[in-house]
Design a protein around this nucleic acid. Sequence first.
DNA 1: TCCGTTTGTGTAATCGTGTACACAATCATG
DNA 2: CATGATTGTGTACACGATTACACAAACGGA
Lengths: 329, 329
Amino acid sequence: MNKRRITSKELAKLAGVSSATISRAFSPDSRIGSATRDRILSVAREHGYQPNAIARSLNNQRSRLVALVVNAIGNPCEAEEQQLLVHRLQARQLLPIILCCADHDDRLQLMRLASTYQVDHVVVFSDMVSMQDAVDIFHTTKPIIVSFEPLENENVSNIRIDGSAAADEIIEKIVNDGKKRFAYLSGTKSSWIDKLRRKWFADALAKRGLAIEAEAFGDYTYDSGFKEAVLLLHRSKVDAIICGNDVMAIGARDAARRMLGKNTPDDIAIVGQDGIAMAAWDCNDLTTLSLDHVAFIDAVVDLIERHDADLPGPHSITLTCNARWGSTA
Amino acid sequence: MNKRRITSKELAKLAGVSSATISRAFSPDSRIGSATRDRILSVAREHGYQPNAIARSLNNQRSRLVALVVNAIGNPCEAEEQQLLVHRLQARQLLPIILCCADHDDRLQLMRLASTYQVDHVVVFSDMVSMQDAVDIFHTTKPIIVSFEPLENENVSNIRIDGSAAADEIIEKIVNDGKKRFAYLSGTKSSWIDKLRRKWFADALAKRGLAIEAEAFGDYTYDSGFKEAVLLLHRSKVDAIICGNDVMAIGARDAARRMLGKNTPDDIAIVGQDGIAMAAWDCNDLTTLSLDHVAFIDAVVDLIERHDADLPGPHSITLTCNARWGSTA
DNA sequence: TCCGTTTGTGTAATCGTGTACACAATCATG
DNA sequence: CATGATTGTGTACACGATTACACAAACGGA
């Protein structure tokens, strides 16, 4: 109970070998007699010995830690991907360290802290940190950086997301349904990914001689979707709202119904983005521009593995989004 | 670009001092000349030097890592608490390592892996690992273990949750509304916390000469709530369903409405548990037995700090739940 | 002026592994 | 049987920081 963790040298004494042999017993491809190994492993089990990963990391120059830079854990718009990625990392004996940007005032300091732990990889989901900052902070330890935002840098691999075709499909349908006046409800004021998403829809509208008439900015939460939709619908007569993510879309839908008595899809069309599981729930049944989460995380893991294998140069993968049809548009 | 991280000895040479002095420059309460410190810090900034946390941890016997054992990241029933805790840990310069149990086949092996990283603390949110296993795996490194489940062990502090009064209030109201036949939809087949929650409601029913008539088991997800509610309502004539968490309650509500045309609260009463933000959304408006997340995480952080201060003995904190009234019961 | 205290710095050991190197023992081969 | 390859193990150092100890310089009080 509460005893100090046993060290390799102590175990060596117990097993009547040198500490080097202990180490070899735990390294799969070492020159060691199988009898010795079995004996050591059994003594180790008996005393609860496990090699100290901190010491091993120091020696190896390989921590097996991965930093995940995210906006928040709670928000479903990222959570499903986080869950998937964590699962895949764990299966590879990599441990994720979560860096939560949303309510941390000094995100750079947070990233610097993580970088002192010599993480092997960094995955940036968050659009609250600039990619350049991430590179500046982590480049000294040479991790891979996986991110949405393309950046010309030999250490940064990225995953491009293309939703233009799906946005076009969605706009096509809404326009065919007779809607003409579109609003865009952004998730953030200045993020790169948000601007990109907005452009997909703006382009699809422009193709049909239409434009985004009204605009609002939330923060990816239900409450902000609700509040901004109310303001939006009071100050302009739009009949379609494209939202920066699904959660805000649900908020906007509720606001339209509750505060203005407008129902989807007849009075107003509402579109989300992300394609989270909740969007498909019976009570929501959202039309949304959706990204295949599994494919996305496959891509991230793929990049990580390429980097682990020391393949040179940054890599880039492009994924395309699909429309998911619900009853809100 | 891509250059190796500079080491304390190298920086020492650049600054014309010994590596010990470098270390002192980065330790707030060291005997060091302020001129020397300033010079070192400036040279350090110039070369991007930061002390290596892995090496420091090895020396210190203190990693500043905290293992969070959770079921899943995505599921909102835990996500809000996780988010809060991560935020609080980061503010204390502690880094969270997430261990996700839900879809990992060998949870014990996962915990053993984390324990080799010499984490300072362990917080067990998950009800998928037995507390005894957690203690066995982590006791050698003497971390605090914070958990729901009380366990007689000098290393385990826990947080007791008492929802009996709130459950009583909720049952009172439902019974007053004329409902008589109750079902309980569990989140898991065998978890400690689930049995406790069930008991709160069972006791409140027993007090009024009633009992749980029908029972089903899901897995804390919307889909399982939906599916199990359908089966439940087909095989028994209950007019109230108490659910193991809010997400399943939303699923059950949707199932009742969509598959059987039964609406809340007139045809059927539905109650959730957790009090997640989504439960209060306009489209859900769930009646739920809710726990104050902030108070809960305050308690966790409190326990962690007591342990950091090396206060002896395990600690125990009890929190009580409240009823949150919505339109589903 | 002299001695005790404080201040600032360097030296060397330590934390717990992994591994290059050395060396003895065993084995294969002619 | 001689020789070279292979196998198994120990010794010693490296990884990059922290820190106990030693010591010189500066300082203060009598």
